[in-house]
Amino acid sequence: MVQQIIVITDGCSNVGLDPVTAAAQAREENIIVNVIGVVDEGDFGLRGTREIEEMAKAGGGLSKIVHSKQLSQTVQMMTRKTVVHTIQQVVNEELQHIIGSTTSLEDLHPNQREKVVDVIEDLEENMLLRVVLLVDASASMKPKINAVEDAVHDLMLSLQAREGKSEVSLFHFPGSKNKNEPAEMDLDWSTEYAIMKRLFYKINMRGATPTGPALLKVIEYMVHKHSDDEIKRLAGMKDVHKKGAMLSDYIV
């Protein structure tokens, strides 16, 4: 199973827990944190850039600053890279078992590489994938929210086409109904594309940016709340290990 959070924001956090700490905590729970900084024009600012880089580093993911127009492709690229990254970890462990300390693909003969990549692609297509999009809904995000909506639709569309199961959930921060909520859920684990339509119309944009506390809330949600029954999830995980073990047949 691959679990990831994609944070979409346009600035620095300004309340509560340091988001870098929260991201490190996610990593501990086997959740990868990717961060996208969105700008309309000009640059992102030094402090903001540092923060998203640090968050991604602590969360084992990627960070990228993009213009609203490129948002869809960036969200997709990151999702895919996260999946591949996780698979490579599984594969690498498997490789280490068999050929010792050499773990990199380029150490393998092209013919062996061919088989490893076939297996990687198989896993990439079939692994259970859980993505939470955590969207900054502070006032300055207003002009970019259409691009966010497009990006979410687009991601759903790509995930739906996978052979394996994908689940997406959506949060925005800060909460709009309850002032004390750092983040609020807009969509519970879902595989449905249709539900996503006009999701954001109800968000009223507010000032504060509690990125850290929002992240924490999402981590808690991911750890404790599973959409389908636990059994299915565990079955999926077992499956991944089985597939990983397939490698040993190839690399002898």
Binding site: E125, S158, Q160, A161, R162, E163
Partner: peptide, 24 residues
């Protein structure tokens, strides 16, 4: 066939035009 399209360019993509899935 049957998997998700590996790589595409938006304007040529059925999904982008909201006219279908990204299944191969």
């Amino acid at each position: 066939k049957g998997r998700s399209i590996k790589q595409f360019t938006e304007i040529y993509d059925r999904g982008y035009w909201i006219n279908g899935t990204r299944k191969a």
